[in-house]
Write a protein that binds this DNA or RNA. Structure first.
Lengths: 348, 348
DNA sequence: GTTAGCACTCGGTAAAATCGAGTGCTAACA
DNA sequence: TGTTAGCACTCGATTTTACCGAGTGCTAAC
């Protein structure tokens, strides 16, 4: 028994075959219809040769164990978060339809451009593919080393510090000096900065010159600006695709508003995705992720890694009654293609 | 008579004083309550010493002339787009509340950072200020000249072309060569690119070397990559703040979805804003802007200019029954502060 | 353990009744 | 001529009532 399985070990459970089938039937139908599911409908669709009455007794049990819930007496049953959890852990498994597979392949053979563009486009792809809102996260250059620094002067006091990192990201920082500097001095400062910083990572401390001439002051200024940003700005990028889906997929203005307002906060989205990744889980249902305003959401994530290192993730956000099979398959497929795209070095 | 006034010349109109007052009352109350407004309510609030009956006859006239509409017989009146138009052109004028004024001032004395960050934060400010969704557009470096180009090699075949423009923007482009290049060659190419491009704008053609050595090939490659992007990528930046407001402010899922899906398309948003600016108008109501899916929206824009040149705009998007006075005042104030912020050179 | 039978619950929908804000019109008035 | 009170009328919104039927839980028979 693995100490930490890919999905958290089921508490007590493992329903017997029939209960599982019934649960599955309820989940599937409810996902499809958004309505409570009744015993007769289950008896009919899941073809265990049993009558509704039997199904009913089983459903009572499933409800007692917390997999199902009744909106009110004399309505059908609806899956709980726990019910969905069992479903995705034990029952769901789907493959991408051929049309979708084709679309994904097409996409990845044709994308070109900068990493950022690819990620952004990918988020659109995902939301088209699944009809849910997608989240693509690129984790930044925290471990990337500096390839090149350059100080460009805009005018005598304003300079722009442009840094290129080994992972291909580029940052810029304004440097406002309290003194004037000539073009030559700026160029020299640039040269020294290169000597100083190339090969280092942002968290490393460097030996700055203590002289008091203009060039040295420029260098110190630049280094401090750069390092000041280091802790906050991890260079995470977030791309959200199909946020308008939120309005289609959730019911109730209030829910829509809540979800949208979460999506607006990029930092929050990043940590949500990272939290889920960290737990080694690929799906977080309802309250599982611990973000209260998203308690009616399910989030599916799949990591994107290059050389064993997780460099990002793709995610999809929908109601708890989302189409897990399809969506998980899509996330899987896209994340793998992305992994390959960034790993398999031979694309622009 | 000016050939093209700041706001399109009123067709026939200019209502007499009493009609105007009545229209104003209807608009104000409807903005407030979202309900059709009846004659008695108008007679009461607008204190022209007249009875509801008289108001009614006037309202009939206003309806005939297209300023008001009746959702159905025996309901109150609702302003039409034309009614709102008259309202904003002739009647509306408001100033920012002191609290808001303070907030704006506070904001602009404390913002720091890159242009992009300032614009993004501004969009948040605007949406907080007005409780509507905001749009901040920065028009790009189409006329900016190149300050510096640098080719950085990631590995033998992958290079990164980093360009700094006179307006402080920085772009990066991957350059994938079909041949290998040494570090020295890349550095030399970098030097030549600088000599070649500094001071030019993207639309200018440059004399590339026709030699066939590695350096020359690199240079040609880089120049072509850079120029290829020029027409599409104008470097426009769009920042949307408070998109969750859409869900609060519009009613009907379908409307919300439509609006959100427009907001997702950055290009579309940019051209919407630019269209309105171009017409020299600051408010576009309902069908005026010609974007059908936004026919229930009003858009308020204010240009941001530096040295007489329009470099961007701030905008706010709400339902046609939005609080024009407040919102226009806010847009005005923020755009002026922004103008000043970018014009008054002494901030980082 | 399963099932048919059955009484019961209760949300959803439809029809009916009611309400009232607001209208348009007319006739009297200044 | 413009204004106003009076009044019948309209019609959406709200409430009431009735009813249907899907679905339940329970029980007794298989």
């Amino acid at each position: 028994m693995a100490r930490r399985a890919k999905t958290p070990a089921p508490l007590v459970s493992d329903l017997d075959a029939r209960k599982a089938t019934i649960l599955e039937a309820v989940v599937i139908e409810h996902i499809d219809t958004a309505q409570p599911v009744g015993s007769s409908s289950v008896a009919h669709h899941a073809d265990l040769g049993v009558s509704p009455a039997t199904v009913r007794t089983e459903m009572v049990a499933l409800e007692r164990e917390g997999y199902l819930a009744q909106p009110h007496t004399s309505a059908g049953r609806v899956p709980t978060d726990k019910g969905y959890r069992y479903f995705v852990d034990h029952l769901a498994s789907g493959v991408l339809g051929p049309a979708q597979q084709f679309q994904v392949k097409e996409f990845f053979t044709h994308v070109r451009g900068e990493v950022e563009d690819v990620l952004e486009q990918t988020s659109l792809l995902l939301s088209q593919l699944t009809r849910y809102t997608s989240v693509v996260v690129g984790t930044g250059h925290s471990r990337a080393s500096v390839l090149s620094v350059q100080l460009v002067n805009l005018d005598a006091r304003h300079h722009l510090l442009v840094t290129v990192y080994s992972d291909g990201t580029v940052t810029k920082h304004s440097v406002l000096a309290s003194f004037e500097a000539t073009h030559v001095e700026v160029t020299e400062a640039s040269r020294q900065l290169n000597a100083l910083l190339i090969g280092t990572t942002l968290d490393a401390t460097v030996q700055v010159p203590s002289r008091t001439d203009t060039v040295a002051k420029l260098v110190r200024e630049a280094v401090s600006v750069l390092h000041a940003e280091a802790p906050t700005m991890d260079g995470e990028q977030v791309y959200i695709g199909g946020s308008s889906r939120v309005a289609e997929v959730f019911e109730g203005v209030e829910t829509v508003r809540k979800v949208l307002s979460i999506l607006e906060q990029e930092l929050l989205v990043v940590s949500l995705v990272e939290d889920i990744l960290e737990k080694g889980v690929s799906v977080a249902i309802g309250s599982e992720h611990g973000y209260e305003p998203l308690s009616s959401c399910a989030v599916i994530v799949a990591p994107v890694s290059v050389e064993g290192e997780t460099v990002g993730a793709v995610g999809l956000l929908g109601p708890t009654r989302m189409k897990y099979q399809e969506v998980m398959a899509a996330a899987e497929a896209v994340s793998q293609h992305l992994t390959h795209h960034f790993g398999g070095e031979d694309r622009g």
